[in-house]
Design a protein around this nucleic acid. Sequence first.
DNA 1: TAGATTGTTAATCGATTAACAATC
DNA 2: TAGATTGTTAATCGATTAACAATC
Lengths: 210, 210
Amino acid sequence: MKDAKTISRAVINRIPKYYRFLCGLQRNGTQKISSGELASLMGVTASQIRQDFNCFGGFGQQGYGYNVESLINEMSDILGLGVSVPMILIGAGNLGRGIANSLDFGKLGFELTAIFDSDRMFTGLKVRGLPVRCFDELEEFCAVNRPRAAILCEQSGEVRETVLKLTELGIHTFWNFTQYDIDDVFPGITVENVCLSDSLMTLSFRMKNG
Amino acid sequence: MKDAKTISRAVINRIPKYYRFLCGLQRNGTQKISSGELASLMGVTASQIRQDFNCFGGFGQQGYGYNVESLINEMSDILGLGVSVPMILIGAGNLGRGIANSLDFGKLGFELTAIFDSDRMFTGLKVRGLPVRCFDELEEFCAVNRPRAAILCEQSGEVRETVLKLTELGIHTFWNFTQYDIDDVFPGITVENVCLSDSLMTLSFRMKNG
DNA sequence: TAGATTGTTAATCGATTAACAATC
DNA sequence: TAGATTGTTAATCGATTAACAATC
């Protein structure tokens, strides 16, 4: 296996899709698959699949193909899905509640352990069984429970301040749904920006120009 | 301006980000900006900005730079934000409600006109002022109101059937939040897949291997 | 005119695809 | 052994960056 740091973003972004399709195959009872079969199923090239898989090691058997179950296990290990990282949600508005309630964090390598909102209107509201906490509790909660990742769903423009604060409290991984890009703002943090309005604007472009 | 169909996906995906930063500059009262200044603000290269802008036409003035307001207007036109396309939401679960309530569709080139859910438990519930309708009403609603785009937030695996049905009812543009990729499944449709669990898995990988 | 900055061509870089030897 | 399919190298393709002439 290559050093994980050298694997390109393009490859990494494809791994979850492989994982998803392989899980679907397993549910159908498929036990082996060749790169060619998987390629036509997923609408990609067999070359790309073999190149991608070989970033992580030789999972296949020449003349035979890939064993679905062991491939799933490898992918799960690569993605770190078996390691449960405590994660908090910042922002209990519509989008925050929607995300908290709609994902199976346990299957994705995380555990949602707390929800915070600066607006006291939300304090005490139960979201997915967790009480919404006010910001005053943040420091103590982090000291005691040591969350290591945060979902950012704030509406306000205080995102940079929030990230700085959370970084000081030991959180260095951010799943960012706010309007504000935080790539590379602070060295050493890991960020995934999901800008839904950008996504909808590209759809608008493609619909109206396609 | 190049033919829109020849513009690469990489460029299209960057346009909303330019638009977002330019709107921020305008709010600060900035009237002109050079590709170099914008580049350092956004953390990209000036070359890339000039290449991207020139896919759509020469917006700048040599020796001066770009006028922020006219650039915003051009971007808005390119993205089609001024044209309001009627859009419906399929699936009024947690994620569907979160998305319906958290976006300003009017500013993004769409108008949310109806919400449908196959589960009658939701029927009549008001989401963002719109009543959730049952699937029986879908055909008549489309015949009368002619929506042209749909947000897919179903939990079930019936997504392909839903897309086929909507296609027959005149909807060819899909913003897809389900687990099921629908690229190229039906010819002539425009799809933007947003797989949140894929996004979280890539974050898991990068956190745990970075 | 001199300085600045664009628009555009050329060079580089990286990612994808094709080809094929290795091998099960 | 013969057939199939991987792992991996080489070729192609596309996207990004650098360079610079055009021009405001």
